[in-house]
Design a protein around this nucleic acid. Structure first.
Length: 435
RNA sequence: GUCCCGUUCGUCUAGCCAGGUUAGGACACAGGGUUUUCAUCCCUGCAACAGGGGUUCGAAUCCCCUACGGGAUGCCA
Protein backbone atom coordinates (compact mmCIF):
# COMPACT_ATOMS: atom_id res chain seq x y z
CA UNK A 1 0.00 0.00 0.00
CA UNK A 2 1.38 3.38 -0.96
CA UNK A 3 -0.04 6.86 -0.79
CA UNK A 4 -0.23 7.13 -4.58
CA UNK A 5 -3.65 8.22 -5.77
CA UNK A 6 -4.30 8.56 -9.47
CA UNK A 7 -7.51 9.19 -11.34
CA UNK A 8 -9.19 8.82 -14.66
CA UNK A 9 -11.76 11.52 -15.26
CA UNK A 10 -13.71 10.83 -18.43
CA UNK A 11 -16.71 12.64 -19.73
CA UNK A 12 -19.41 10.18 -20.78
CA UNK A 13 -20.07 10.90 -24.42
CA UNK A 14 -21.55 7.63 -25.56
CA UNK A 15 -18.31 6.12 -26.81
CA UNK A 16 -15.01 5.11 -25.26
CA UNK A 17 -12.14 6.51 -27.28
CA UNK A 18 -8.90 4.59 -27.58
CA UNK A 19 -6.93 7.61 -26.37
CA UNK A 20 -9.06 7.87 -23.25
CA UNK A 21 -8.69 4.16 -22.71
CA UNK A 22 -4.94 4.44 -22.85
CA UNK A 23 -4.93 7.34 -20.41
CA UNK A 24 -7.07 5.21 -18.10
CA UNK A 25 -4.69 2.31 -18.62
CA UNK A 26 -1.56 4.27 -17.76
CA UNK A 27 -3.15 5.59 -14.59
CA UNK A 28 -4.34 2.13 -13.67
CA UNK A 29 -0.92 0.61 -14.38
CA UNK A 30 0.74 3.16 -12.18
CA UNK A 31 -1.70 2.53 -9.35
CA UNK A 32 -1.31 -1.21 -9.59
CA UNK A 33 2.45 -0.93 -9.89
CA UNK A 34 2.75 1.26 -6.81
CA UNK A 35 -0.02 -0.29 -4.77
CA UNK A 36 -1.88 3.00 -4.85
CA UNK A 37 -5.52 3.85 -5.46
CA UNK A 38 -7.14 4.26 -8.85
CA UNK A 39 -10.05 6.68 -8.77
CA UNK A 40 -12.73 6.91 -11.45
CA UNK A 41 -14.35 10.30 -11.53
CA UNK A 42 -17.11 11.15 -13.95
CA UNK A 43 -17.09 14.57 -15.55
CA UNK A 44 -20.78 14.68 -16.29
CA UNK A 45 -21.31 18.41 -16.35
CA UNK A 46 -22.70 18.46 -19.87
CA UNK A 47 -26.27 17.49 -19.01
CA UNK A 48 -27.37 17.07 -22.61
CA UNK A 49 -24.96 14.36 -23.56
CA UNK A 50 -24.49 12.63 -20.24
CA UNK A 51 -27.07 9.92 -20.23
CA UNK A 52 -26.92 6.78 -18.16
CA UNK A 53 -26.43 4.85 -21.37
CA UNK A 54 -23.33 6.88 -22.14
CA UNK A 55 -22.01 6.17 -18.66
CA UNK A 56 -22.56 2.46 -19.12
CA UNK A 57 -20.55 2.44 -22.35
CA UNK A 58 -17.66 3.78 -20.35
CA UNK A 59 -18.02 1.51 -17.35
CA UNK A 60 -18.47 -1.55 -19.53
CA UNK A 61 -15.43 -0.63 -21.55
CA UNK A 62 -13.37 -0.21 -18.40
CA UNK A 63 -14.55 -3.52 -17.01
CA UNK A 64 -13.96 -5.26 -20.31
CA UNK A 65 -10.38 -4.02 -20.37
CA UNK A 66 -9.97 -5.16 -16.79
CA UNK A 67 -9.32 -1.67 -15.47
CA UNK A 68 -10.97 -1.98 -12.09
CA UNK A 69 -11.30 1.17 -10.01
CA UNK A 70 -10.85 1.41 -6.26
CA UNK A 71 -13.13 4.41 -5.88
CA UNK A 72 -15.85 5.79 -8.10
CA UNK A 73 -19.25 4.86 -9.52
CA UNK A 74 -20.76 1.68 -8.12
CA UNK A 75 -17.95 1.11 -5.63
CA UNK A 76 -18.08 4.40 -3.76
CA UNK A 77 -15.20 5.58 -1.61
CA UNK A 78 -14.25 8.12 1.04
CA UNK A 79 -13.74 11.01 -1.36
CA UNK A 80 -17.11 11.09 -3.10
CA UNK A 81 -19.31 11.98 -4.69
CA UNK A 82 -17.55 10.79 -7.82
CA UNK A 83 -19.82 12.58 -10.25
CA UNK A 84 -19.02 16.21 -10.89
CA UNK A 85 -22.70 16.98 -11.22
CA UNK A 86 -23.02 16.22 -7.49
CA UNK A 87 -20.10 18.27 -6.28
CA UNK A 88 -21.38 21.82 -6.67
CA UNK A 89 -21.17 22.58 -2.97
CA UNK A 90 -17.53 21.61 -2.94
CA UNK A 91 -16.80 23.87 -5.91
CA UNK A 92 -18.67 26.78 -4.37
CA UNK A 93 -16.76 26.35 -1.12
CA UNK A 94 -13.47 26.52 -2.95
CA UNK A 95 -14.59 29.54 -4.89
CA UNK A 96 -15.09 31.26 -1.53
CA UNK A 97 -11.51 30.43 -0.57
CA UNK A 98 -10.29 32.19 -3.68
CA UNK A 99 -12.61 35.13 -3.10
CA UNK A 100 -11.38 35.48 0.48
CA UNK A 101 -7.84 35.65 -0.79
CA UNK A 102 -8.79 38.21 -3.39
CA UNK A 103 -7.93 35.80 -6.18
CA UNK A 104 -11.41 35.67 -7.69
CA UNK A 105 -13.45 38.56 -8.96
CA UNK A 106 -16.62 39.16 -10.93
CA UNK A 107 -16.58 40.57 -14.39
CA UNK A 108 -19.23 40.58 -17.12
CA UNK A 109 -21.32 38.23 -15.03
CA UNK A 110 -18.62 35.57 -14.83
CA UNK A 111 -16.03 34.88 -12.16
CA UNK A 112 -12.39 35.30 -13.11
CA UNK A 113 -9.30 33.92 -11.46
CA UNK A 114 -6.50 36.35 -10.86
CA UNK A 115 -3.23 34.93 -12.12
CA UNK A 116 0.12 35.52 -10.48
CA UNK A 117 1.98 36.30 -13.71
CA UNK A 118 4.85 34.21 -12.45
CA UNK A 119 6.31 31.42 -14.55
CA UNK A 120 4.95 28.06 -13.56
CA UNK A 121 7.58 25.37 -13.53
CA UNK A 122 6.27 21.89 -14.17
CA UNK A 123 8.58 19.02 -13.41
CA UNK A 124 6.83 16.71 -15.78
CA UNK A 125 7.63 13.03 -15.32
CA UNK A 126 7.68 12.47 -19.05
CA UNK A 127 8.88 15.74 -20.50
CA UNK A 128 11.14 17.06 -17.82
CA UNK A 129 11.11 20.69 -16.85
CA UNK A 130 8.50 22.73 -18.65
CA UNK A 131 8.11 26.42 -18.02
CA UNK A 132 5.07 28.45 -18.92
CA UNK A 133 3.58 31.72 -17.84
CA UNK A 134 -0.13 32.45 -17.89
CA UNK A 135 -0.77 35.78 -19.48
CA UNK A 136 -4.25 36.73 -18.47
CA UNK A 137 -6.89 36.04 -15.88
CA UNK A 138 -9.27 33.29 -16.89
CA UNK A 139 -12.87 32.36 -16.24
CA UNK A 140 -13.59 29.83 -13.50
CA UNK A 141 -17.38 30.32 -13.26
CA UNK A 142 -19.56 31.06 -16.25
CA UNK A 143 -22.15 33.76 -16.17
CA UNK A 144 -24.80 31.03 -15.78
CA UNK A 145 -23.19 30.13 -12.47
CA UNK A 146 -21.55 26.87 -13.49
CA UNK A 147 -17.86 26.23 -12.86
CA UNK A 148 -15.53 25.54 -15.80
CA UNK A 149 -13.33 22.55 -16.43
CA UNK A 150 -10.03 23.99 -15.19
CA UNK A 151 -11.52 24.87 -11.85
CA UNK A 152 -13.49 21.70 -11.16
CA UNK A 153 -10.62 19.58 -12.33
CA UNK A 154 -8.25 21.17 -9.86
CA UNK A 155 -10.73 21.23 -7.01
CA UNK A 156 -11.55 17.56 -7.57
CA UNK A 157 -7.92 16.53 -7.74
CA UNK A 158 -7.23 18.52 -4.61
CA UNK A 159 -10.17 17.28 -2.58
CA UNK A 160 -9.72 13.72 -3.73
CA UNK A 161 -6.11 13.73 -2.68
CA UNK A 162 -4.78 12.95 -6.13
CA UNK A 163 -0.98 12.66 -6.02
CA UNK A 164 -0.18 12.02 -9.69
CA UNK A 165 -1.97 13.41 -12.70
CA UNK A 166 -1.31 11.27 -15.74
CA UNK A 167 -3.09 12.67 -18.80
CA UNK A 168 -2.77 13.44 -22.47
CA UNK A 169 -0.31 15.95 -23.84
CA UNK A 170 -3.18 18.15 -24.93
CA UNK A 171 -3.36 19.25 -21.30
CA UNK A 172 0.27 20.26 -21.02
CA UNK A 173 -0.43 23.86 -21.91
CA UNK A 174 -3.33 23.94 -19.46
CA UNK A 175 -1.11 22.81 -16.64
CA UNK A 176 0.15 26.29 -15.85
CA UNK A 177 -3.46 27.31 -15.18
CA UNK A 178 -3.91 24.32 -12.95
CA UNK A 179 -0.70 25.00 -11.05
CA UNK A 180 -1.85 28.54 -10.38
CA UNK A 181 -5.19 27.29 -9.10
CA UNK A 182 -3.58 24.75 -6.78
CA UNK A 183 -1.35 27.43 -5.37
CA UNK A 184 -4.21 29.87 -5.11
CA UNK A 185 -6.09 27.30 -3.05
CA UNK A 186 -3.05 26.92 -0.85
CA UNK A 187 -2.20 23.44 -2.03
CA UNK A 188 0.87 21.72 -3.44
CA UNK A 189 0.17 20.69 -7.04
CA UNK A 190 0.34 16.98 -7.74
CA UNK A 191 3.04 15.34 -9.85
CA UNK A 192 2.26 15.63 -13.54
CA UNK A 193 2.99 13.19 -16.34
CA UNK A 194 1.82 14.12 -19.82
CA UNK A 195 1.64 11.24 -22.23
CA UNK A 196 1.84 11.53 -26.01
CA UNK A 197 -1.25 11.47 -28.15
CA UNK A 198 -2.33 8.59 -30.34
CA UNK A 199 -2.21 9.71 -33.95
CA UNK A 200 -4.31 8.65 -36.90
CA UNK A 201 -3.11 5.60 -38.79
CA UNK A 202 -3.10 7.68 -41.93
CA UNK A 203 -3.27 11.39 -42.43
CA UNK A 204 -2.68 14.12 -39.93
CA UNK A 205 -3.64 14.68 -36.35
CA UNK A 206 -4.77 12.61 -33.45
CA UNK A 207 -7.15 9.68 -33.67
CA UNK A 208 -10.69 10.88 -33.88
CA UNK A 209 -13.75 8.87 -33.04
CA UNK A 210 -14.49 8.39 -36.71
CA UNK A 211 -11.21 6.65 -37.42
CA UNK A 212 -11.09 2.91 -37.80
CA UNK A 213 -10.06 1.31 -34.56
CA UNK A 214 -10.69 4.43 -32.50
CA UNK A 215 -13.41 3.07 -30.26
CA UNK A 216 -13.06 0.40 -27.60
CA UNK A 217 -16.54 -0.85 -28.45
CA UNK A 218 -15.21 -1.95 -31.83
CA UNK A 219 -12.74 -4.31 -30.17
CA UNK A 220 -15.43 -5.67 -27.91
CA UNK A 221 -17.64 -6.39 -30.89
CA UNK A 222 -14.86 -7.86 -32.94
CA UNK A 223 -13.99 -10.27 -30.14
CA UNK A 224 -10.49 -9.04 -29.52
CA UNK A 225 -8.97 -10.31 -26.32
CA UNK A 226 -9.02 -7.50 -23.75
CA UNK A 227 -5.54 -8.42 -22.57
CA UNK A 228 -4.29 -8.06 -26.12
CA UNK A 229 -5.86 -4.62 -26.42
CA UNK A 230 -4.27 -3.63 -23.12
CA UNK A 231 -0.95 -5.00 -24.33
CA UNK A 232 -1.06 -3.10 -27.62
CA UNK A 233 -2.28 0.11 -25.99
CA UNK A 234 0.51 -0.03 -23.44
CA UNK A 235 2.99 -0.23 -26.32
CA UNK A 236 1.56 2.89 -27.91
CA UNK A 237 3.75 5.41 -26.19
CA UNK A 238 5.48 3.17 -23.70
CA UNK A 239 7.85 0.24 -23.79
CA UNK A 240 9.80 -1.77 -21.24
CA UNK A 241 13.16 -0.79 -22.80
CA UNK A 242 13.92 -4.25 -23.99
CA UNK A 243 12.64 -6.36 -26.86
CA UNK A 244 9.52 -7.64 -25.15
CA UNK A 245 6.30 -6.83 -26.94
CA UNK A 246 3.84 -9.59 -26.29
CA UNK A 247 3.35 -9.41 -22.56
CA UNK A 248 0.87 -10.42 -19.91
CA UNK A 249 -0.89 -7.64 -18.04
CA UNK A 250 0.96 -8.63 -14.86
CA UNK A 251 4.25 -8.28 -16.63
CA UNK A 252 3.29 -4.84 -17.93
CA UNK A 253 2.31 -3.72 -14.43
CA UNK A 254 5.59 -4.96 -13.07
CA UNK A 255 7.64 -3.11 -15.66
CA UNK A 256 5.59 0.05 -16.05
CA UNK A 257 7.34 3.30 -15.26
CA UNK A 258 7.40 6.93 -16.42
CA UNK A 259 10.84 6.51 -17.92
CA UNK A 260 9.52 4.18 -20.56
CA UNK A 261 6.95 6.67 -21.77
CA UNK A 262 7.59 8.18 -25.16
CA UNK A 263 7.58 11.91 -25.83
CA UNK A 264 6.42 11.96 -29.42
CA UNK A 265 2.97 10.99 -30.64
CA UNK A 266 2.40 7.39 -31.65
CA UNK A 267 0.63 6.39 -34.80
CA UNK A 268 -2.00 3.70 -34.44
CA UNK A 269 -1.36 0.50 -36.45
CA UNK A 270 -4.24 -1.93 -36.80
CA UNK A 271 -1.99 -4.63 -38.23
CA UNK A 272 0.24 -4.68 -35.21
CA UNK A 273 -2.81 -4.60 -32.98
CA UNK A 274 -4.09 -7.68 -34.82
CA UNK A 275 -0.73 -9.35 -34.49
CA UNK A 276 -0.66 -8.84 -30.72
CA UNK A 277 -4.20 -10.17 -30.51
CA UNK A 278 -3.26 -13.30 -32.46
CA UNK A 279 -0.31 -13.92 -30.19
CA UNK A 280 -2.49 -13.66 -27.10
CA UNK A 281 -5.06 -15.96 -28.67
CA UNK A 282 -2.47 -18.64 -29.35
CA UNK A 283 -1.08 -18.32 -25.85
CA UNK A 284 -4.44 -19.06 -24.24
CA UNK A 285 -4.73 -22.36 -22.38
CA UNK A 286 -6.92 -24.68 -24.50
CA UNK A 287 -9.82 -24.54 -22.09
CA UNK A 288 -9.91 -20.77 -22.18
CA UNK A 289 -9.70 -20.75 -25.96
CA UNK A 290 -12.50 -23.27 -26.21
CA UNK A 291 -14.69 -21.30 -23.86
CA UNK A 292 -14.33 -18.19 -25.99
CA UNK A 293 -14.69 -20.18 -29.18
CA UNK A 294 -18.01 -21.60 -28.00
CA UNK A 295 -19.30 -18.05 -27.62
CA UNK A 296 -18.29 -16.90 -31.07
CA UNK A 297 -19.49 -20.13 -32.66
CA UNK A 298 -22.82 -20.03 -30.88
CA UNK A 299 -24.69 -19.90 -34.19
CA UNK A 300 -23.33 -23.24 -35.27
CA UNK A 301 -25.13 -26.33 -34.15
CA UNK A 302 -22.35 -27.77 -32.06
CA UNK A 303 -23.15 -30.85 -30.09
CA UNK A 304 -21.51 -31.69 -26.81
CA UNK A 305 -18.65 -34.09 -27.06
CA UNK A 306 -15.02 -34.46 -27.91
CA UNK A 307 -15.29 -33.37 -31.52
CA UNK A 308 -15.50 -29.68 -30.63
CA UNK A 309 -12.43 -29.86 -28.42
CA UNK A 310 -10.50 -31.68 -31.13
CA UNK A 311 -11.43 -29.16 -33.77
CA UNK A 312 -10.37 -26.36 -31.49
CA UNK A 313 -7.05 -28.05 -30.89
CA UNK A 314 -6.51 -27.98 -34.63
CA UNK A 315 -7.65 -24.41 -34.95
CA UNK A 316 -6.03 -22.62 -32.05
CA UNK A 317 -2.42 -22.82 -33.24
CA UNK A 318 -3.33 -21.43 -36.64
CA UNK A 319 -6.40 -19.23 -36.29
CA UNK A 320 -5.74 -15.52 -36.35
CA UNK A 321 -8.73 -14.16 -34.48
CA UNK A 322 -11.97 -15.07 -32.77
CA UNK A 323 -13.72 -12.74 -35.18
CA UNK A 324 -12.83 -14.96 -38.14
CA UNK A 325 -12.91 -18.28 -36.32
CA UNK A 326 -16.36 -19.11 -37.60
CA UNK A 327 -15.30 -19.01 -41.23
CA UNK A 328 -12.18 -20.95 -40.33
CA UNK A 329 -13.98 -23.94 -38.81
CA UNK A 330 -17.68 -23.79 -39.65
CA UNK A 331 -17.48 -26.65 -42.17
CA UNK A 332 -16.55 -28.99 -39.33
CA UNK A 333 -20.03 -28.51 -37.95
CA UNK A 334 -22.32 -28.20 -40.94
CA UNK A 335 -22.77 -29.72 -44.36
CA UNK A 336 -24.08 -26.70 -46.19
CA UNK A 337 -20.85 -24.72 -46.26
CA UNK A 338 -19.96 -22.86 -49.43
CA UNK A 339 -17.27 -24.26 -51.71
CA UNK A 340 -15.49 -21.27 -53.11
CA UNK A 341 -15.52 -21.05 -56.88
CA UNK A 342 -12.25 -19.15 -57.01
CA UNK A 343 -10.50 -21.98 -55.18
CA UNK A 344 -11.98 -24.54 -57.57
CA UNK A 345 -10.77 -22.56 -60.55
CA UNK A 346 -7.30 -22.46 -59.12
CA UNK A 347 -7.05 -26.17 -58.44
CA UNK A 348 -8.61 -27.05 -61.78
CA UNK A 349 -5.58 -25.57 -63.47
CA UNK A 350 -3.44 -28.33 -61.99
CA UNK A 351 -5.54 -31.24 -63.16
CA UNK A 352 -9.08 -32.55 -63.13
CA UNK A 353 -10.43 -32.24 -59.59
CA UNK A 354 -13.16 -34.78 -60.18
CA UNK A 355 -10.60 -37.38 -61.12
CA UNK A 356 -8.61 -36.58 -57.99
CA UNK A 357 -11.68 -36.88 -55.81
CA UNK A 358 -12.42 -40.31 -57.23
CA UNK A 359 -8.87 -41.38 -56.58
CA UNK A 360 -8.98 -40.14 -53.00
CA UNK A 361 -12.31 -41.85 -52.38
CA UNK A 362 -10.90 -45.11 -53.60
CA UNK A 363 -7.82 -44.69 -51.42
CA UNK A 364 -9.88 -43.86 -48.36
CA UNK A 365 -12.22 -46.77 -48.83
CA UNK A 366 -9.29 -49.14 -48.56
CA UNK A 367 -8.33 -47.76 -45.11
CA UNK A 368 -9.03 -50.12 -42.24
CA UNK A 369 -9.23 -47.73 -39.35
CA UNK A 370 -9.08 -43.95 -39.26
CA UNK A 371 -5.90 -42.97 -37.48
CA UNK A 372 -3.55 -40.27 -38.67
CA UNK A 373 -1.04 -42.93 -39.65
CA UNK A 374 -3.58 -44.94 -41.60
CA UNK A 375 -4.88 -41.93 -43.49
CA UNK A 376 -1.38 -40.82 -44.24
CA UNK A 377 -0.40 -44.27 -45.51
CA UNK A 378 -3.47 -44.48 -47.70
CA UNK A 379 -2.64 -41.15 -49.30
CA UNK A 380 0.99 -42.12 -49.66
CA UNK A 381 -0.03 -45.28 -51.48
CA UNK A 382 -2.18 -43.19 -53.77
CA UNK A 383 0.73 -40.88 -54.48
CA UNK A 384 3.06 -43.75 -55.26
CA UNK A 385 0.53 -45.29 -57.62
CA UNK A 386 0.91 -42.11 -59.63
CA UNK A 387 4.65 -42.04 -59.38
CA UNK A 388 4.83 -39.38 -56.69
CA UNK A 389 6.72 -39.24 -53.42
CA UNK A 390 4.06 -37.43 -51.44
CA UNK A 391 0.33 -36.83 -51.82
CA UNK A 392 0.48 -33.04 -51.79
CA UNK A 393 -0.87 -32.78 -55.31
CA UNK A 394 -4.23 -34.07 -54.01
CA UNK A 395 -4.36 -31.78 -50.98
CA UNK A 396 -5.92 -28.66 -52.49
CA UNK A 397 -8.69 -30.75 -54.03
CA UNK A 398 -9.36 -32.59 -50.78
CA UNK A 399 -9.37 -29.34 -48.87
CA UNK A 400 -11.77 -27.72 -51.28
CA UNK A 401 -14.05 -30.74 -51.11
CA UNK A 402 -14.23 -30.97 -47.35
CA UNK A 403 -14.07 -27.28 -46.47
CA UNK A 404 -14.60 -25.23 -49.62
CA UNK A 405 -11.47 -23.28 -48.80
CA UNK A 406 -7.87 -23.02 -49.88
CA UNK A 407 -6.39 -23.05 -46.41
CA UNK A 408 -7.03 -24.34 -42.94
CA UNK A 409 -5.67 -26.70 -40.33
CA UNK A 410 -3.06 -29.31 -41.18
CA UNK A 411 -4.49 -31.67 -43.77
CA UNK A 412 -4.16 -35.15 -42.31
CA UNK A 413 -5.03 -34.33 -38.68
CA UNK A 414 -7.96 -32.38 -40.03
CA UNK A 415 -9.29 -35.38 -41.96
CA UNK A 416 -8.75 -37.58 -38.93
CA UNK A 417 -10.73 -35.25 -36.69
CA UNK A 418 -13.52 -34.89 -39.24
CA UNK A 419 -14.05 -38.60 -39.30
CA UNK A 420 -14.30 -40.97 -42.19
CA UNK A 421 -18.02 -40.65 -42.79
CA UNK A 422 -18.01 -36.91 -42.92
CA UNK A 423 -14.97 -36.80 -45.21
CA UNK A 424 -16.52 -39.28 -47.62
CA UNK A 425 -19.82 -37.40 -47.55
CA UNK A 426 -18.09 -34.13 -48.46
CA UNK A 427 -16.01 -35.74 -51.18
CA UNK A 428 -19.11 -37.32 -52.74
CA UNK A 429 -20.92 -34.02 -52.62
CA UNK A 430 -18.01 -32.24 -54.23
CA UNK A 431 -17.85 -34.86 -56.93
CA UNK A 432 -21.52 -34.39 -57.67
CA UNK A 433 -21.03 -30.65 -57.97
CA UNK A 434 -18.46 -31.23 -60.66
CA UNK A 435 -20.76 -33.22 -62.91
C1' G B 1 -0.14 35.50 -34.57
C1' U B 2 1.73 34.02 -29.59
C1' C B 3 3.15 30.19 -26.21
C1' C B 4 4.28 24.96 -25.05
C1' C B 5 5.84 20.07 -26.73
C1' G B 6 7.96 16.90 -30.18
C1' U B 7 11.04 14.67 -34.73
C1' U B 8 15.57 7.30 -35.36
C1' C B 9 13.42 2.17 -40.95
C1' G B 10 6.42 2.77 -44.14
C1' U B 11 4.69 1.98 -38.60
C1' C B 12 5.78 1.03 -33.09
C1' U B 13 10.44 1.54 -30.97
C1' A B 14 15.95 0.41 -28.51
C1' G B 15 20.21 3.37 -28.34
C1' C B 16 20.49 9.78 -26.32
C1' C B 17 20.74 11.61 -19.79
C1' A B 18 26.88 9.46 -18.55
C1' G B 19 29.67 11.10 -27.25
C1' G B 20 33.15 5.87 -30.10
C1' U B 21 27.25 0.40 -32.10
C1' U B 22 28.21 -3.30 -38.82
C1' A B 23 22.33 2.07 -35.42
C1' G B 24 19.29 -3.41 -32.52
C1' G B 25 14.17 -5.55 -32.11
C1' A B 26 8.94 -5.96 -33.62
C1' C B 27 4.80 -5.15 -37.23
C1' A B 28 4.22 -4.63 -42.39
C1' C B 29 6.30 -5.84 -47.08
C1' A B 30 9.48 -9.07 -50.46
C1' G B 31 12.06 -13.75 -51.36
C1' G B 32 13.09 -18.80 -49.78
C1' G B 33 12.23 -23.29 -46.84
C1' U B 34 9.23 -26.89 -43.82
C1' U B 35 5.41 -28.69 -47.89
C1' U B 36 3.93 -28.98 -55.89
C1' U B 37 -1.82 -28.08 -49.17
C1' C B 38 -2.39 -24.06 -45.45
C1' A B 39 -4.79 -17.88 -42.11
C1' U B 40 0.91 -22.15 -38.94
C1' C B 41 6.19 -22.26 -38.13
C1' C B 42 11.54 -21.19 -39.61
C1' C B 43 15.31 -18.42 -42.47
C1' U B 44 16.85 -14.29 -45.44
C1' G B 45 16.18 -9.53 -47.45
C1' C B 46 14.35 -4.41 -47.66
C1' A B 47 14.46 -0.09 -44.87
C1' A B 48 15.92 5.21 -40.48
C1' C B 49 19.26 9.09 -37.06
C1' A B 50 14.36 15.86 -40.59
C1' G B 51 18.06 19.79 -42.60
C1' G B 52 22.04 23.12 -41.49
C1' G B 53 25.72 25.04 -38.29
C1' G B 54 28.73 24.58 -33.83
C1' U B 55 31.64 21.88 -29.82
C1' U B 56 34.94 17.53 -30.20
C1' C B 57 40.18 13.38 -32.40
C1' G B 58 35.10 11.53 -32.86
C1' A B 59 27.94 13.49 -32.70
C1' A B 60 21.82 9.67 -33.50
C1' U B 61 23.78 11.14 -28.65
C1' C B 62 25.81 17.88 -26.24
C1' C B 63 24.58 23.33 -27.98
C1' C B 64 22.22 26.79 -31.59
C1' C B 65 19.19 27.83 -35.87
C1' U B 66 15.69 26.28 -39.59
C1' A B 67 11.94 23.14 -41.37
C1' C B 68 8.08 20.02 -40.40
C1' G B 69 4.48 17.75 -37.02
C1' G B 70 1.36 18.04 -32.59
C1' G B 71 -1.03 20.80 -28.72
C1' A B 72 -2.75 25.20 -26.25
C1' U B 73 -4.49 29.92 -26.81
C1' G B 74 -13.22 29.02 -25.16
C1' C B 75 -18.00 31.63 -20.31
C1' C B 76 -15.79 23.09 -24.40
C1' A B 77 -13.92 19.03 -21.53
Amino acid sequence: MSNVRVRFAPSPTGFFHIGSARTALFNWLYARKTGGQFVLRIEDTDKERNTDEALQVLLEGMRWLGLDWDEGPEVGGDYGPYFQSQRNEIYDKHLEILRDKGLAYDKEGAVFFKISEEPQIIEDQVRGRVERTEEKDFVIYRSDGSPVFHFVNVVDDLTMGITHVIRGEDHLSNTSKHMELFKGLGAEPPVFAHIPLILKQEGQGKMSKRDKGALIGEYQERKFLPNAVVNYLSLLGWNPKDDQEVMSVDSIIEQFDFKGIQKGGARFDEKKMAFVNTEHLRALVPQAFQGLAREVLADLDIKEGDYFAEVMQLAQPKASSLETLNSYVDYFFKDDFVRQQSVLEKISKKGDPKEKIEQVLAAINSVEGWTVVEIENALLRLARQHGQEKPFAWFPTIRWSVSGLAGGPDMIPMLQVMGRERVIRHLEKAKKLLN
